[in-house]
């Protein structure tokens, strides 16, 4: 699961390339959660996500909650069609 990580100023930009599904969430969680709290701002780039399911949605929800806890501002830098469709289906996620 390729994750690109790039820090510009105080913003860490994390890009996910591939699936955001039950097959990858464990790995992604392990990689992403430590990032929270390390930087004041974290931008998630989901424009290269090919597929997203309920588990992926849940991971984003957890990230969102943890970011608030740790005082990191989480933002979305981009979203692919798969991600967009999932958000639409769920009526926008109440993070």
């Amino acid at each position: 699961m390729p994750i690109t990580c790039e820090t510009v100023d105080d913003t860490t930009c994390v890009g996910i390339d591939g699936e955001l599904t039950i097959y990858t969430v464990a790995e992604l969680a392990a990689a992403l959660l430590p990032q929270l709290g390390a930087a004041p701002r974290l931008a998630l780039d989901l424009s290269q996500v090919t597929e997203m399911d309920g588990a992926g949605l849940q991971l984003l929800a957890v990230l969102h909650r943890e970011a608030e806890h740790r005082g990191t501002a989480l933002s979305l830098a981009g979203q692919s069609q798969a991600v967009e469709q999932t958000f639409t289906l769920c009526g926008g996620v109440a993070f």
């Binding site: 969430v25 464990a26 588990a55 949605l57 991971l59 909650r65 009526g91 996620v93």
Partner: peptide
């Protein structure tokens, strides 16, 4: 309308990415 509920998500230390 759909509202996604995430209030049952447990704290991080007991959270498992593969549980729903």
């Amino acid at each position: 309308q759909v509202t996604t509920l995430t209030d049952r998500l447990p704290p991080l230390d007991s959270w498992d990415a593969e549980s729903c």
